[in-house]
């Protein structure tokens, strides 16, 4: 459980024409998965590194759980913040298990507990402990190294997790499964995650809170749906491709739409012929089902019971701006 608050945070590298981070303010609530999205060089990594004080700030303040980090011991602070660095940065001289065990060892856990924790974590990132524990990083693929990097960041059960383009060097399939694992992990541990990417699809599918960054400042902050449906500036609209109707459909779930819309009227047809979809499914997926089956409407199921019926017109209205 940890909330993060930036208040007017500024970082100016010596000799740079303009600050890399230029007075940003943002509150990230506890257990939130916030995604920093922005083009290369806009200051994402720099901002991330201010949180665990790897990067000193030249102005403003950063609070964790309401406490100014400037007053905290940086070493202790870093040990309770997991950080998946952009370059993975596994220790080449340590085995996978030893890499994952670094922070628990620094914290002085007993070896039995460390070893159990390592196996649990490796399993969680879909690496078989038996076959991966004793390998060296040079004996792993890029994607496997990234998984180990994630396991290592999670090792001491941090309440804050900073992830800097953690899935940079993996193919689309592995990427999707790692994204799923990240979401599951976040729901399970309740960690506050700050996730950096310049992949729009990834940002939209992961974010509770999406922060669009440009040239050191925040261009817009909101849920993916808010940002896609109401982009604040032309830059945001272009970056997230807000004109793409399918993309807008992809960030709204059936549940979100039917909660606001009126309940569907009872239908004359046999319920069995109408596809039933869970409320957590996106409008885009629902549309795909309608196109595939030819069904003009779908039933929206909530906890196994029909909550609403949705037709193409409702979908069309939802996507219209």
């Amino acid at each position: 459980m940890a909330s993060i608050r930036f208040a007017g945070v500024r970082v100016a590298y010596p000799g740079a024409a303009r600050p890399a981070v230029d007075g940003v303010t943002l509150a990230i609530p506890s257990a939130c998965l916030a995604v920093l999205l922005g083009p290369s060089g806009c200051g994402k990594t720099t901002l991330l590194r201010t949180i665990n004080r790897l990067q000193p700030i030249d102005g403003g303040r950063i609070e964790i759980d309401g406490r100014d980090t400037a007053g905290l011991d940086p070493i202790a602070l870093r040990r309770r913040i997991g950080y998946v660095i952009q370059a993975v940065g596994l220790f080449p001289h340590l085995t996978v298990a030893q890499n994952v065990a670094v922070v628990p060892n620094l914290l002085g856990w007993d070896s039995q507990r460390v070893s159990e924790r390592v196996d649990t974590l490796l399993a969680q990132v879909s690496l078989d402990p038996q076959s991966f524990r004793d390998r060296y990083p040079s004996q792993l693929s890029g994607g496997q190294q990234q998984r180990v990097g994630i396991a290592r960041a999670l090792a001491a059960e941090p309440s804050i997790l900073l992830m800097d383009e953690p899935f940079g060097s993996v193919d689309a399939i592995v990427r999707a499964s790692l994204q799923k694992e990240t979401l599951a992990l976040q729901r399970r541990t309740g960690a506050t995650i700050l996730f950096v990417t310049h992949d729009v699809e990834e940002a939209l599918s992961l974010a509770d809170m999406l922060v669009v960054m440009r040239d050191g400042h925040f261009e817009q902050t909101g849920t993916p749906a808010e940002i896609l449906t109401h982009p604040a500036t032309p830059f945001v609209a272009e970056l997230v491709d807000a004109d793409d109707a399918l993309r807008r459909l992809s960030v709204i779930t059936l549940g979100e739409l039917t909660a606001s819309a009126a309940r569907g009227t009872p239908l004359p047809e046999e319920p069995g012929t109408i596809p039933a979809l869970d409320a957590g499914v996106s409008l885009r997926a629902a549309l795909a089902v309608m196109l595939e089956t030819g069904a003009p409407r779908v039933r929206v199921m909530h906890d196994g019971r029909e909550a609403a019926v949705l037709d193409l017109d409702t979908l069309r209205n939802a996507v219209r701006r």
Binding site: L77, R78, Y83, G89, F91, L106
Partner: peptide, 17 residues
Amino acid sequence: EPAALDAAAAMGMTRWQ
């Protein structure tokens, strides 16, 4: 490797460690 140093610092190693 600079990345290894960076990761070590991020994990809260002291200079000596």
